[in-house]
Design a protein around this nucleic acid. Sequence first.
DNA 1: TTGAAAGCGCTACCAA
DNA 2: TTGGTAGCGCTTTCAA
Lengths: 344, 344
Amino acid sequence: MVQIPKQPGRAAPVRRPVPTSADVARLAGVSRATVSYVLNNASAVRISEPTRRRVREAAEELGYVPHAAARSLRAGHSRMVLMPAPAVPVGPLYHQFFAELQSALGRLDYTVVQYGSVGLRGDEAARAWAELRPVAVLVPGSGLGPEGVAVLKRSGARAVLTLGPERVDGAHALLMDHDRVGHCAGVHLLAGGRRRVGVVMPEENGLEIFSRPRLEGVRRALRGTSATVTELPLAYEEEAAARLAARWGSLGLDAVFGYNDEYAMLLMRALQDEGVAVPEQTAVVGADDLMLGRLLRPRLSTVHLDLPSGRDLAELVDRVVREPGAEPETHEVLGARVVHRASS
Amino acid sequence: MVQIPKQPGRAAPVRRPVPTSADVARLAGVSRATVSYVLNNASAVRISEPTRRRVREAAEELGYVPHAAARSLRAGHSRMVLMPAPAVPVGPLYHQFFAELQSALGRLDYTVVQYGSVGLRGDEAARAWAELRPVAVLVPGSGLGPEGVAVLKRSGARAVLTLGPERVDGAHALLMDHDRVGHCAGVHLLAGGRRRVGVVMPEENGLEIFSRPRLEGVRRALRGTSATVTELPLAYEEEAAARLAARWGSLGLDAVFGYNDEYAMLLMRALQDEGVAVPEQTAVVGADDLMLGRLLRPRLSTVHLDLPSGRDLAELVDRVVREPGAEPETHEVLGARVVHRASS
DNA sequence: TTGAAAGCGCTACCAA
DNA sequence: TTGGTAGCGCTTTCAA
């Protein structure tokens, strides 16, 4: 890590007070009300053009910027959509989704704020979010309980949506059931004649939210057949993959679902280095359909995920905000389909 | 994309007003002042234990959550550190850095908020940020001008730091000069006897901020030698890479710096598919030192980046907040070193 | 040990 | 067309 040297600061400088609308009014020689009218383009009142100009110039000169907190305190509500930043490092897929969502909400005149609630957990976090009095809260992952939902609603949030593996009482749910992902992979491997399927379980923290349901999906796909499922704990490191590959023969597996493309590639490479033929001896399937899966040889088969469109989700948020108290809806929003390439 | 069906909502429900500290006071049979004392553990006044309990119970029963905006309006300042979300999709490197920074700031009792300012640009964005009256603003990338810095400071921000390729007047700068990255790669290739160096320039939007300085770094490394630099525009798609590889012979290059590991891998794969031997005919070097660079064969040589530690940066922010007006400091915080593997 | 009240910056109502 | 002013929820003197 690069060091940032610590050094004592200089003497304190002049701190000019932050200009308020009263300052603008004073400078323009009008009342604060007039300032408010002009700067908000109030349509209910008519202000003469010269006055408008004077106010605008005064504001400009002082570098006046309205105080959002005061405004929303007065208004009794805000247009803030709060989105706790996901604790788990997310991939490019989620990134694109989020960017889209944000710009769509922006067009609907909401302000999207990502709140980093490290350390806090569960309903403690919900309290922290509630203090900001957001009009809507969009919670990715799990971790929000019914208690948390209640806290948020009581503090004025008109829409509480979860975006994750399970429903939460009282909140609208965008259900992303990763069971489907594993199920896809399982069905695919089964159809390919595989019978002894390994499933990679990342050892990295926080990934169980996704890995457990994916595992369950594979189980579900193989249920009622003679095929078996073996859990394969794996850290995201070359050495760990090499160790796993070294005992591959003793595991007797003919297929593996790699949790996602990255773990799948890591393992596939280790298997190849160990002399295991892919896909002949062992089929490998990833998930997420990343570009890099196409760069290895054999090309990695994968489960392609469809996230909801940010636009649709933004509209849903807007609808719920305008119609709060409507029965919470549940939408299945995770599409999954196999992209068959050469590794399976 | 998965469709979210549009449907009309139900009738509006009862909307209970959000409980305030006055409600708590009423229920507990005390004054609002007492409520404030109790809930903030004010040390200056002594409140009897029975009263404390009554207040706590009342707050609990009502589900009272304090109103952050009102509080900071009254206090005249906040503990909010605002960080505009980077417009460009960022990698796992930045993610880890950000998580660390956030948790370090959290420990110093700051609230980190990521603000998505899509659409807005430059000083328009700065105004939007200023409305939130953050105590500190941490701006990644470029896009903030001296005007923007002034707006933020005038509206009470005690620390404005930029985190990017260039200094901005009035702001503290964590300089991440990507020139170094290219320079590293250039020196390395030169030392390996390469003389005709291609540099991948991603065609994706927003990446010029990084790609131009990296290119310049390569140029700088080769200056004064007989070696030449060739720009290679490339979209992040297999077909584009294949097209580039197809005309590789006519380019007459014996080395390529791939902008980062992902582009480098994309191109390396295309070159191999085209029958170009790596590293014999063409050396390939990436940057970022991603895990996946170790999975291809030959293993990808890369430039490893050192971002500043989140802890150090958090301390810097805290120091500047407490000592505003100190002369803006500039720190070089991007470390870069070559990791020599098999592709060069 | 507790309460009354001022005031942070802003907007919207009502009066002039 | 403009100004006066109440009040959003909170903390913090000052007085009781």
